[in-house]
Write a protein that binds this DNA or RNA. Structure first.
Lengths: 349, 349
DNA sequence: CCGCTTAATGTAACCGGTTACATAAAACAT
DNA sequence: ATGTTTTATGTAACCGGTTACATTAAGCGG
């Protein structure tokens, strides 16, 4: 039996690290680290020297080592309600791009509007190591907020604007937006109005939108009776089914306001398949301003939400927070009414 | 001046670590680590003891420390061409869920079919620390494959089936799928056929699909002249514009085959807005089997791709690869023709 | 009952960065 | 010129796991 050689490093990756760079540049590891991360702490010439040596050796810092040592992962988690339809895609794109610019990477998890799954995914994200978390809306199990508090993980709510909430947010006013849309319908002359709301059981944004619609109706001395309201999760199929149900229970309606554009597309399809003319026989409108809804025939009237801008602002807020500075407590994203061929005054009877 | 107390640990997070668990359980840190990660190496009773103590102390391993020490991040990157339309959403959902089950988290980056951006995002992903990478299709700058080889990062191609490629893959046969679809159109009696292909300049899947269409046409002794072909990136708007262009240059066409369902929806909308009846005046078909396309009126005929299944298989392949076992070199995902009301025999002149 | 293999556990050296503290040099005030 | 503050750099101890190697106990064939 030949004895194994002792003293050989058992697990050396062989790649260049701070120590290699330090030796090659003739400085200490501390100087290398500082030259790369706190440039102002190192003299001009030395910094240039170190930087060039590092570049020459093709040095790439090990993210795990950096994370362990500095207690920062440079990773940000985002819990997205759904990625099935493209509601959040522009938001994610913009968010990711802006975070990348500041050296952060984005980890997305989605939970399909399932509260328990959201908690589970949150735990997984936290345990996989993130510096901050993005959440949609305010309402969720308190356990999640507790988890974040315990682990001291900063977070940010999106898609909702709550200046009085204890939580920081970057979002828009769902209630006011929906109210604007409903007023638009009312001002066209509609009085018999149906609503296909979003998943109000699990989404406070959906609830706020319905509230906005009610506010507008009330201002016109109208109510929203139960048989003119149906609640569905966001999908085209559900939009179709929603309109079916409304037309069965309230055939007198001349307009239907949908919780978002995906539901509105579904409603439009159902109307077409029933031979109803939109907007002559029925006006339809949505919320979100999805590209695809803008290309439908007729174009779907909607409240446009600049989600890319929201992504940008959210990223900036997070970066600010994580750098220790004070970020604005609530950032308002402006929505705007986009009229479309899917709405018109009701037919005179 | 009061002298500062010396000897205080300068940066202790205070949270429980292996050492705390080890002390509380009366064992060594090695045993704790093994009890949690290689259970079979620890005796039954001791493992149960350690596990319960760890749970009691609410011990959560530090992911950074684990990554640094074990040289594994338990993170997997995915470079997705686009998240703007929901082509990849079910894939991502399934992939993420399955990876989570095996303790991996998923980091997504998208590059909007921009080759340079793909390289950039790949570099960012690699430098942020990933154990493996998912790529869509085969064609890309060689630099990216080189980067992965240098860093010894395993990877997997999806959305494409290439049994003879040097790269591992989990995907479907784009060419054969498109050929099937084109044959369907031909068998309905169409001979004047237009094509709105995907971004063939940057996507080998788009090219393969067009190839499949050509193969079917050739089998019927037909050609695909340039004025009956137009190439667009995937969006509803581009589908509309694509059909516009085809109808301008080749008004004789009775059917249009689209590179995917998103383009097909656009073509359908353009047809409607021009007062053309689908399918009587024009047959339209797509590819992918998106939910939304199945709800259009008329329902869009398509090649259904089980992307959730692809996500599952991809996750399983990756997990197998990363555990050191041999994963299948190429996994075929079956597509199937889904007829729809958007196609019919051409009108007799 | 003894030497030998196998299994279970402990010790401590890593992984590769960051950063508190020490030290030396330079700038500045008196 | 001398004491004091500021600035630049080095030394080495961390961060919190994993795991090679050492050690001890148990299993086993003859």
């Amino acid at each position: 039996m030949v004895k194994q050689v002792i003293g050989v490093n058992r697990r050396t990756t062989g790649s260049v690290g701070v120590r290699q760079v330090a030796k090659a540049a003739g400085v200490s590891t501390a100087t290398v680290s500082r030259a790369l991360n706190q440039p102002h702490q190192v003299s001009e010439e030395l910094r240039k020297h170190v930087t060039s040596v590092a570049a020459e050796l093709n040095y790439i810092p090990d993210p795990a080592a950096r994370a362990l040592s500095s207690q920062k992962t440079f990773r940000i988690g985002a819990l997205i309600p759904t990625i099935a339809n493209s509601i959040y895609s522009r938001f994610i794109e913009a968010l990711q791009r802006r975070l990348r610019e500041s050296g952060y990477s984005l980890v997305i998890a989605n939970y399909d509007f399932d509260e328990a799954l959201e908690m589970e995914e949150a735990r997984a994200l936290v345990e996989s190591g993130i510096d901050a978390l993005i959440l949609a809306g305010e309402h969720r199990t308190p356990d999640l907020y507790e988890l974040l508090a315990t682990r001291r993980i900063p977070y940010l709510l999106i898609s909702i604007y709550l200046p009085d909430s204890p939580h920081r947010c970057v979002g828009y006013d769902n209630r006011a937006g929906a109210e604007t849309m409903a007023r638009h319908i009312l001002e066209l002359g509609h009085r018999e109005i149906g609503v296909i709301e979003g998943p109000s059981g699990v989404s406070d944004r959906a609830r706020l939108r319905t509230r906005g619609i009610r506010d507008a109706l009330n201002a016109f001395d109208l109510e929203l009776p139960a048989h003119r309201l149906t609640s569905r999760s966001f999908s085209v199929r559900n939009g179709r089914e929603g309109l079916s149900q409304l037309l069965d229970g309230a055939p007198e309606i001349t307009a239907v306001i949908c919780g978002n554009d995906v539901l509105a597309i579904g409603a439009l399809m159902e109307a077409q398949s029933r031979g109803l003319n939109v907007p002559e026989d029925l006006s339809i409108c949505g919320f979100d301003g999805l590209d695809i809804a803008q290309e439908m025939v007729p174009q779907i009237a909607t409240m446009h939400v600049p989600t890319a801008q929201m992504g940008l602002k959210a990223a900036e807020s997070l970066v600010t927070m994580l750098s220790g500075e004070e970020a604005p407590h609530a950032v308002l994203i402006e929505t705007r009414l986009v009229p479309g061929g899917s709405t018109a005054p009701p037919k005179k009877p």
